[in-house]
Each structure stands twice: as C-alpha cells, then as structure tokens.
C-alpha cells in the first residue's frame, strides 16, 4: 500500500448522454485534479467510463470530491464512484 500516491479511480455508470465527459473533466479541472487516463465502453448496456486521476496537485480531499461528483451525477442519472486504486490492486492482483 502506498498512501502517498494519490491515484484514484473514478467510475461513471448510467445511460449514455451528451456531455458526460465534458462535465466531469471540467469539474476535475476546477478542483485541480489531473486526469491520467480515460476509457469508455458500453458494458452490460450501460455507459461505463473509467478514469484514473491524480489527486496530489489538488487541495480537495477525496471525500469532498466524491460527494460533489456523486450528487451532480445523480441529477444526471449517473452513478459516480471514486476509490483509491489500491482497492482494485488488492482485490484483483496477487
């Protein structure tokens, strides 16, 4: 576990619509969060966007950012999760 690295994985799930990436990229820029990679697919009939971001340049805590994105996402019918990458490394890699 490397707590000093602050890479988080943001996932956005829901019905496809115009402006999802624009919205989330803008919000992340406002919070000074650097996007490292984006992938987008339609999985199980759902729009699925997975984004890896670096929170270290930002002054915003993950909890705060997660709350804002989850609330704004909900208004658009999207489910937004933000989790530290270690969760996936621990669960899916030995």
């Amino acid at each position: 576990m490397e707590a000093q690295k602050n890479r988080m994985i943001i996932t956005v799930l829901g019905n496809d619509q115009i402006g999802i990436i624009a919205w989330i990229a803008n919000r992340l820029a406002e919070f000074n969060v650097n996007i490292l990679d984006i992938s987008q697919t339609i999985l199980q009939e759902f729009f699925t966007m997975i984004m890896i971001v670096d929170l270290s340049p930002s002054k915003t805590a993950a909890a705060n950012l997660g709350k804002i994105l989850a609330e704004e996402g909900k208004q658009r019918g999207l489910q937004v999760n933000i989790q530290h990458e270690d969760v996936f490394a621990y669960m899916h890699r030995i």
Partner: peptide, 19 residues
C-alpha cells in the same frame, strides 16, 4: 499511466459494494 485494471474487474468491485 495506463489503466491496468479491466473494466469488469472495476465494475465487479463496485457491484460488491453498491449492490
């Protein structure tokens, strides 16, 4: 920095927590 996790791995984790 490439995403090194498959989408279904990430979704499986989220499914476990959310549902």
């Amino acid at each position: 920095m490439k995403i090194t996790f498959a989408p279904d791995e990430i979704l499986q984790t989220i499914e476990m927590v959310v549902n």
